[in-house]
Amino acid sequence: MTQATTPPADLPAEATAGAEDAVPAIRLRGLVKHFGDVAAVDGVDLDIADGEFFSMLGPSGSGKTTVLRLIAGFESATAGTVELGGTDVTKAAPFERDVHTVFQDYALFPHMSVLDNVAYGLRVRGMGRSQRRERAQQALETVRLGHLGSRRPSQLSGGQRQRVALARAIVLQPRVLLLDEPLGALDLKLREQMQVELKQLQRELGITFVFVTHDQEEALTLSDRIAVFDAGRIQQLGTPQEIYEQPASAYVAGFVGTTNLLDAATSQRLLGVDAEHAVRPERLRLSPAAEMEKAGPGEVRLSAVVTETIYLGVGNRVHLRTDDGLELVALEQSTGSLDDSDHRGDHVTVRFARADAVALAAAP
């Protein structure tokens, strides 16, 4: 299935000028990969721009990691082509491709110092000792670990080991850096910190990053664009805002964030439109049932009962059941009307703007 190519929103003007004519860092055409009778990748067409932070998002088995391995050359394509910088590398070996991969398991050499770990790839390429150590030290400075070059990997924290793996990749100055869930082994606080550092590093280096993750928040936080995968195909391609605010299908709406899905019959009754719709929980507004009044022309109002409230720190996730049995979820900020106690059983008015109900494409 063909995907339109658009430049990332936050690239500088000179990088996006004439983007339609620019040679992409990565171009995939008709990419297919079969494992026996299973189509792990099923006809992927994709352009990734030079200098873009691009994420491939999807659950386990959706095909995203296989696409990454096809780009890296660790798997051979059943059909289709892989181009890097306009050159067809479909049949090329991994070492013949101007890419480097950072895995979730950083695979650092435990018997080597941090500096020697970073310099290893340059050593394999035959670079002299003094030059490769200088380049490795510069890479460590880039990831803010210049003072730890003499340590062994076992003496580092998880976040520091992750940065050493990044330094080992960027010291080779690849055109494309492939990252296969590199933050998955970190705890939540460290993962959030590394998300910020990773995005800053990518902007400083200007290297194309291709990031594979099943974590929707990670993809939304880091990416210029996201491809949402399912069953070996790209279900939607767009900016984080487009993916979240305008999901193309019920699958995308349900996978990327929490959403309220209104089937065609419910949409017809509430909106007068015979098509499935999605409404994000933060778009629902709650008020006491006593304030129920007739909805205006641009608004939908429903009477409901609170079935559960879940405290999230910044607010509450409120589960609701309308009088006609519709299950909804609302997100209330801590300053909202339902933030101070257990409100199960309370009768409330649920309101949302008709414009906040996003029409979804019918399932193929």
Score class of each variant (00 low, 15 high):
L183P: 03
L205N: 05
E299S: 12
M292P: 00
E282Q: 13
Q235W: 03
A169I: 07
V305E: 14
D224M: 07
L284R: 01
V305M: 06
R175H: 05
E218Q: 11
A167H: 09
A275S: 14
L166Y: 11
I170E: 12
L237N: 14
I243P: 00
P240W: 04
L271P: 01
E282H: 13
V196Y: 03
V164A: 02
T208Q: 03
A250I: 08
T258W: 13
D230L: 10
R283L: 11
P247C: 03
V256N: 01
Q216W: 03
P240C: 09
T258S: 15
V256G: 01
G254I: 08
G238W: 04
T221A: 15
V306N: 11
A264M: 07
A265M: 11
V176N: 08
R203P: 06
P288V: 04
E293T: 15
Q246M: 13
V210N: 12
Q236A: 06
E242L: 04
P182R: 00
G296T: 13
E218P: 01
M194R: 00
V300D: 12
Q246I: 05
Q160F: 10
D263E: 12
L186H: 03
K199R: 15
D230H: 14
L220E: 06
A231K: 14
E282K: 07
G232L: 09
A253W: 05
F255D: 08
T259E: 04
V171M: 07
V171R: 11
L286D: 12
I207R: 09
G254R: 14
P297I: 02
Q162T: 10
G272R: 00
V196H: 08
F229L: 08
R269H: 13
D215Y: 02
L271I: 00
L270R: 07
R175G: 15
L262I: 05
L237S: 06
L172G: 06
L205M: 11
T258D: 15
A289S: 14
S303V: 08
G272A: 01
V210Q: 09
H277A: 09
P240F: 03
E282I: 02
A278Y: 00
G296E: 13
E242V: 05
E218W: 00
M194P: 07
L177C: 13
A289W: 01
V305G: 07
H214G: 02
P174F: 02
R269N: 13
Q193Y: 00
I226Q: 06
L178D: 12
E282L: 05
L177E: 04
A169G: 10
A278C: 01
R168T: 10
S249I: 08
I207E: 11
E197F: 11
R163L: 08
